[in-house]
């Protein structure tokens, strides 16, 4: 398998599309023949990061690089940034507004889930500029 690169745009505040990019990526990984448990890990992690871009930022872009050894996904937004990353990573911490809580979001479990399901996770964020999350999942 050659290196495969995939790109997705994520719209802001569009819950009708939320989860679409991670769903598409999941299908592509399945078609490429990756193991179901690896596909599930990638799908969960990317879904959480995608939803965060919809809820907390103004949408953004997702770029995935797939090789037989490793799946790397970069999710970049131009949202407000995360003031305290350590706090944001805590289970249960959420600034989700009431209108999205009523949809089932806001448990404060998204970022901890990403950590749990990836081998490497890096958050690069600047207030007023945006947030870039880089995820790596190895195929072992």
């Amino acid at each position: 398998m050659e290196e495969v690169k995939l790109h997705y745009d994520v719209n802001a505040y569009d819950f009708t599309c939320a989860g679409e990019a991670s769903g598409k990526l999941k299908r592509s990984l399945k078609d490429l023949g990756f193991d179901a448990s690896l596909v599930r890990k990638v799908a969960i992690a990317v879904y959480e990061a995608e939803i965060n871009m919809v809820i907390h930022a103004d949408g953004g872009v997702i770029d995935a690089t797939i090789t037989p050894e490793c799946i790397t996904v970069v999710l970049a937004d131009k949202g407000p940034g995360i003031p305290d990353v350590e706090l944001a990573m805590k289970e249960g911490y959420s600034t989700a507004p009431e209108n999205v809580r009523s949809l089932g979001f806001g448990a404060g479990m998204g970022l901890p889930n990403i950590k749990k399901y990836t081998d490497e996770m890096n958050i690069d964020t600047e207030i007023g500029v945006g947030t870039t999350i880089t995820l790596k999942i190895y195929n072992q």
Binding site: F105, M109, Y117
Partner: peptide
């Protein structure tokens, strides 16, 4: 009913009981 909770805890093949009937579910 909390989606990111379900996302990480529900297992493949589970019956998922919830009152959330929106597109995110």
């Amino acid at each position: 009913d909390l989606l990111s909770w379900v996302m990480s805890r529900a297992q493949e093949g589970d019956v998922w009981l919830t009152v959330m009937g929106n597109i995110n579910s």
